[in-house]
Simulated scan of single mutants.
Amino acid sequence: MTRQIERLRPHQIAEALSERSLIYLPLGTIEWHCHHLPVGLDALTAHGLCLRAADKTGGLVWPPLYYGTGGDHAGFPWTVMMPDETAIRPLLLHTLHRLNQLGVGTVVLFSGHFANEQLAMIDGIASDWNAIGKGPKVIPLAVNRARIENFEPDHAGLFETTLLSGLMPETVDRERLSSGDEGGLDRFDPKSPLWGIVGADPRRLPPVAPNELVDGVANWLAAAKPQRAG
């Protein structure tokens, strides 16, 4: 049975949550990730990793939210970035209230977008919610918080390219990147062959294979869970 809650009927949802009362809520954006990656990368990776983790832990995965905040790419092509958390926070809080009413025990806010503002938002929501001491426990996590040895998280660079290659290889096309030297160009200059990339050059060979990176992050996400409900 799929772990995607939107594809399940009510009795299937009840059965899955009776085994593990846990909902993963993946967060992302629509944001420029250079020419070789899809604009939905952050949400695609968050959703894919949540599904991998749920296969290990039980529980279900909510549809990803493709709106985020923060970062330096707001003016790049095909990017829709909220200026702050004002529009996003109420959506997440209302979702938590409804999941509380439905008896869910734990909710993981898992962000594939890890700008400082985004991380502050999910940390603040979790802190405020958990301080009440009622309803589901909320755990704020993000892709960049999974520490993979010798492989630093980035934006559209070698890390994110490798990660998405392990989850959805058909969405990645490294051949769209020029083989030329950067020539001293700033990566925020549209003339740069690595326009908008922050981090290691994705044209290099990664230190670990794509599937190994996916497994490493998914295992970390799964291990970050509390004890089984009940």
Rank of each mutant, 00 (worst) to 15 (best):
M1W: 13
R7K: 15
R9Y: 10
Q12V: 04
S18H: 11
L22I: 04
L22E: 03
L25W: 08
L25Y: 12
P26L: 07
P26D: 05
G28Q: 03
T29S: 14
I30A: 13
H36G: 10
G40H: 09
D42H: 08
G48F: 07
R52I: 00
A53P: 02
G58T: 00
W62F: 15
L65W: 09
L65Q: 07
G70I: 05
H73E: 08
P77F: 09
M82K: 00
P83Y: 06
P83R: 03
P90R: 03
Q101G: 09
G105K: 09
T106H: 13
V107L: 05
F110G: 04
A115D: 04
M121D: 03
N130H: 11
V138R: 11
N144C: 15
I148V: 15
H155G: 09
G157T: 03
L163H: 06
G166V: 00
M168Y: 15
M168D: 13
E170L: 00
E170H: 14
D173M: 05
R174N: 11
S178L: 11
L185R: 11
R187F: 08
R187D: 02
F188N: 10
P193G: 11
R203A: 11
E212D: 14
G216T: 01
L221Q: 08
A223I: 04
A224I: 02
R228C: 04
G230T: 10
